[in-house]
Write a protein that binds this DNA or RNA. Structure first.
Lengths: 148, 148
DNA sequence: CCTCCATAGTTGTATGATACAACTATATTG
DNA sequence: CAATATAGTTGTATCATACAACTATGGAGG
């Protein structure tokens, strides 16, 4: 069994890895990791309601407003009032947004290939399911009333 | 094999988990996760050179200066010029800092117990070693010249 | 048809983490 | 001693983020 110092280090390392992802520019110099992820989400779904973005990113609604702002300004994403509900905002990709998505996926694929290369092939499946399990556990505990 | 959409989701989930850790107040209302970690590090080592902190946190030196600032202000940590090198700063815990460390470890232990409870006992060892492996892989790729 | 409440988004304001560059002060080495 | 390297601080800027107050719109019940 692990002791709790090791677990704390694990959380800190996770924070570091996250920081690396968010600061790296594999997904482009012009947009951040989160912004790329948003573009990717819109690309997947065609149209994305801003409300749904709050949920997908697990952030406060004002945060999603502000996250999309730069990519709207820079012409990656189009923001339109929904036809069926005037309060709502529908997000779609511009041509530039589509190109960017494809372009950055190339870089991301390279990144993932390198990542996989660091993990023995016969362990990859195990590693990923374990990481998923771990992240789910963390998430679940934070939803519990717990110590906080 | 996983497809890369799943891998991307994994990274995003990792970022969410990190955010949870950093916003949660299990380790106290008065200090942040990183600040608690710093206090814990000083407690472990007795005295910590500020330079060493840059490395332990993997941050720029100006960042560590600013991270310790609030906990120095609030009287958890004492900042003193090193006797042997006048340029250097030695960090030590105050009495309050020690108490805080012990207090917050109680909360953190609870948190880890809850976390472990979410993972079947016979899988815990596997899960943690896989997460470690994964984080190491991420770290290693970012050190490579790679796509960025 | 109103009224009341709920929902979608925006804006003001504040905080934390972070980097880079320029700077000061001190140590070390040739 | 001079030149260079190291430790830390400060100015400045950016991103992510939350909460609260606000506007505008939609829906449900009388």
């Amino acid at each position: 069994m692990r002791n709790n110092q090791e677990l704390l280090s694990l959380l800190v390392d996770m924070a570091k890895a996250t920081r690396c992802c968010q600061q790296d520019s594999s997904y482009g110099e012009d947009i951040t990791f989160t912004q790329f992820y948003i573009i990717n989400l819109i690309a997947e779904q065609g149209t994305l309601r801003l409300t749904d973005l709050h949920a997908l990113l697990s952030v406060e609604k004002s945060t999603s407003t502000r996250l999309i702002d730069p990519i709207v300004q820079r012409g990656y994403v189009k923001k339109e009032k929904s036809a069926c509900d005037c309060r709502a905002i529908d997000l779609t990709l511009t041509e530039k947004g589509h190109e960017t998505n494809i372009e950055h996926w190339k870089c991301l694929n390279d990144f993932f290939n390198q990542l996989l290369a660091e993990i023995p092939e016969d362990k990859q499946e195990e590693v990923f399911s374990c990481v998923v399990l771990f992240l789910k556990a963390v998430k679940k505990v934070f939803n519990h009333p717990g110590c906080s």
